[in-house]
Every structure is written in structure tokens, then in C-alpha cells.
């Protein structure tokens, strides 16, 4: 078998915090599946620790955070800190949901590469993820 013949981009879709609406996250998970990604969906009410722990064990290439609660400026820094604590430094983090324009720079500065707000075409998000998922070198 040639090297990496089966390599598939693995994406974690998570809903951080107190936010009970996961339709958008599920639609995105489905769309990414249809685009050929392997999507790990962990459901609602995820703490930063849970998200980082799942990202670590699942060794994902991409983390998609879906948030509608308005708590992004509070919870995203904690998620990024938990990732850093675990040495997860080569993962693409993107966000979706309701994040006001004036917060986007702050979110971007945290290391979140893109924010997909309401009205974003699914294909836009898919293309972004495919183009920006980190390249991995062979190790060992």
C-alpha cells in the first residue's frame, strides 16, 4: 500500500458551553462527511477541557466550534489555552455561528483561522477547511 493512500482529514465538531441548539453543527457535520472528511461529533455542552481532550485522543486535523450563545469571547480563549496545555499546536481551528463582526478580530487573534457566520455557503467552509488543514510530515 502506498504511503498515506488512505489519509483522510479528521474534523472535530463541538458545541462549547451552555448552548442548546446544534442544528447548525449537525448540518456542518453532515456536509463535511459528504465532502469526504471524517467527522467526530461530540454534541452539546462541551467544556474547553472536553473539547481539548477529544481533539487530543482523536488526533484531529481541524476543530470546528459552533456557538450561538454569545459567550465566544469568554469560552474560546479557554479552549485555545486547553489545547496549548496539551501541546496541540498543529490543528486548524474554525468557528461557526453567531459571532458579531466587531468580535471577529479578537477571535482571529486567538488563533481561530476563520469565522463562518449565518448565510455562509457550506461549500465555502468545506473549501476553506480543505485548503487550510495542516500538512503533516511523516514521523519516525
Amino acid at each position: 500500500m502506498p504511503d498515506s493512500a488512505e489519509r483522510r482529514i479528521r474534523v472535530l465538531i463541538a458545541k462549547p458551553g451552555l448552548d442548546g441548539h446544534d442544528r447548525g453543527a449537525k448540518v456542518m457535520a453532515r456536509a463535511l462527511r459528504d465532502a469526504g472528511f471524517e467527522v467526530i461529533y461530540t454534541g452539546l455542552f462541551q467544556t474547553p477541557e472536553m473539547i481539548a481532550s477529544a481533539a487530543l485522543q482523536e488526533d484531529v486535523d481541524v476543530i470546528g466550534l459552533s456557538i450561538l450563545s454569545g459567550a465566544h469571547l469568554d469560552i474560546f480563549p479557554r479552549i485555545m489555552a486547553e489545547l496549548k496545555t496539551r501541546g496541540i499546536d498543529d490543528v486548524l481551528v474554525v468557528a461557526g455561528g453567531t459571532i458579531p463582526d466587531e468580535d471577529r478580530q479578537a477571535i482571529h487573534d486567538l488563533g481561530v483561522a476563520a469565522v463562518f457566520g449565518p448565510g455562509t455557503r457550506l461549500q465555502t467552509a468545506i473549501d476553506f477547511i480543505r485548503d487550510h488543514a495542516p500538512m503533516r510530515a511523516e514521523e519516525l
Binding site: I40, T42, G43, E49
Partner: peptide
């Protein structure tokens, strides 16, 4: 399962296995 059409997959078992995440 993986999709026979796209090769992608929705891996949803973890959602029920979060009790020991810590």
C-alpha cells in the same frame, strides 16, 4: 461506517462516552 459515496464518515460514538473525559 464510512460513506460508500464520499468516503467521509460521521463518527458519533464519542458523544455517549464523555463520562470519563477528564
Amino acid at each position: 461506517p464510512s460513506s460508500p459515496l464520499s468516503g467521509g464518515a460521521t463518527l458519533g460514538d464519542r458523544i455517549r462516552m464523555l463520562d470519563q473525559y477528564a
